[in-house]
Amino acid sequence: MELTFRTATPTERLYTASQSMQLKGQTGCVGHLRADTGMDAQGFFKKWQTYQLNSDNEEFKREFEGVMNALVSDGQYGGFLKSRDAMRDFCQRHPESSFKDGFAFGFRADTAQYSYLIRLNPYKEENTLILYCYRRDSLERHMKQAEKGIRFITPHYEEKFRIADGDMIRIRCPDGRQLDRECRYIDECHVEVGKGWDNLYHICQFAEMMERSGNSVIPLRSSLPLVCYGKVPEKRAIVMFERGFDGYRSASFATKGRTSQKLVDELNSEMGVTKAQAAAMLAGATQGWATPAADPKNYDEQGQPIKSRNRDRGDAR
């Protein structure tokens, strides 16, 4: 059995968690394994759940057993399933695999027919290992389609914006409430908004529902930082922008001989915010988060707008 093993990409990490029945079907999800560790952190207590009985056959079971044995004992894969200590050491050697919270780590193993998307939680006794198995061809086909992004439109099919699969939207209600929901790509015309049995919508149905309720929807792009610093023409002082919030807050800093723009660049750089992101945050806070100018892909490395006659305002990040 040939097995390839590598760090999971941020997009692939979406598939290390429970999927809806719709996504399980489209991605060919065979089942998933969850494993806890005992008090001694040595052994694993495993539980397998099947989703597709026709795929969970003897041939698959033999392959699955071989994959698990390789992840336990084969040194070329790190032997991280020997114990929770071995898992923790392995994850610490691969910081690039970390989820945003810093406590979970994602990996992918592939055979000819199947893909295993793995989430490791080496600091937890429960759900220390979560592994989802997919038909490789079905998973890759769905992920390729999902690269188009999720469309949000008006009831008249006019495109407002797109977001990447797994990104969030904010629903602004007339009573002042703000509801943040994760969205998953189903196909060109269908989207899952949030969790639950009734969260699947045709994109026109969702647009009509928002209009009837008097709600507005904006993207919360993962390509944007939560906060950054900047300057606006009407204020000499440095201000702070927050993703998804209109306007800005004052931020007092002593410039100490530096120009305020230079200080803004330094502050943003310290937080890992690029000039393209800062420019998009300024546009989002002052022009609206659904505008193309609020997407960092529309700026160069210096934060200057990219001039292109063929720019597609609907491309997802």
Rank of each mutant, 00 (worst) to 15 (best):
I203G: 02
K124W: 03
E270N: 09
D246L: 04
K160V: 15
D40Q: 11
S18P: 00
Y299V: 01
M21W: 06
R151C: 09
Q49E: 14
L282R: 06
L179Q: 10
P95C: 09
E58Y: 04
K256R: 09
L200V: 08
D300Y: 07
D175W: 10
T9Q: 07
G28S: 10
I169T: 08
E2T: 14
D198R: 14
K256L: 13
T291A: 07
G303L: 05
M240V: 00
Y132D: 11
G303W: 04
E59L: 11
H94T: 03
E234I: 09
K231I: 00
H142Y: 15
K124Q: 14
E242M: 05
Q145R: 14
L3S: 07
I171M: 12
N57H: 07
H190A: 04
D85V: 13
C173E: 14
F44T: 06
P305T: 05
G79V: 02
G75T: 13
Q145S: 13
W289C: 00
G75V: 13
F44W: 15
P155G: 09
E242A: 07
D89S: 14
S223H: 03
C183H: 07
S73Y: 14
E211I: 02
P122K: 06
R313K: 13
R258Q: 15
K148N: 12
A86Y: 03
S98H: 03
F60K: 11
I118L: 15
S20K: 05
Y123F: 12
P305Q: 05
F44M: 13
S98A: 15
L267C: 09
F90S: 03
T286W: 00
I306D: 00
Q277I: 02
D167Q: 12
H32E: 08
R119D: 05
A207V: 08
S250R: 08
N69F: 03
I186R: 02
G166F: 01
Q302N: 13
S115F: 04
C183Q: 06
V273T: 07
P10A: 04
N54A: 13
E192R: 10
P225R: 00
S250E: 11
G79Q: 15
A278L: 01
L33F: 05
E126C: 03
E65P: 00
T154Y: 07
G176F: 09
E63N: 07
P174C: 10
S115N: 04
L23A: 04
D85A: 14
D246G: 03
Y51P: 05
G194Y: 11
A276P: 02
H94G: 02
F253I: 09
A164G: 10
R84A: 14
S260I: 12
A280S: 08
C204D: 11
D137Y: 11
H190S: 12
G194W: 12
A104Q: 11
E147G: 05
S252M: 11
G38Y: 08
D165Q: 08
V217K: 06
F245R: 00
G166T: 08
D40N: 13
L33D: 07
Y248C: 10
S20C: 09
L139A: 14
R135V: 14
D101N: 15
R141M: 07
N268P: 08
G31L: 10
I130K: 01
I150N: 08
E188N: 12
F161I: 12
R172S: 11
P122E: 10
M1Q: 12
P225T: 03
R249S: 11
E125M: 14
P10Q: 09
D36F: 02
M39H: 09
Y132I: 02
K124D: 13
S97E: 04
E59Q: 14
I186L: 15
G196I: 05
L33K: 02
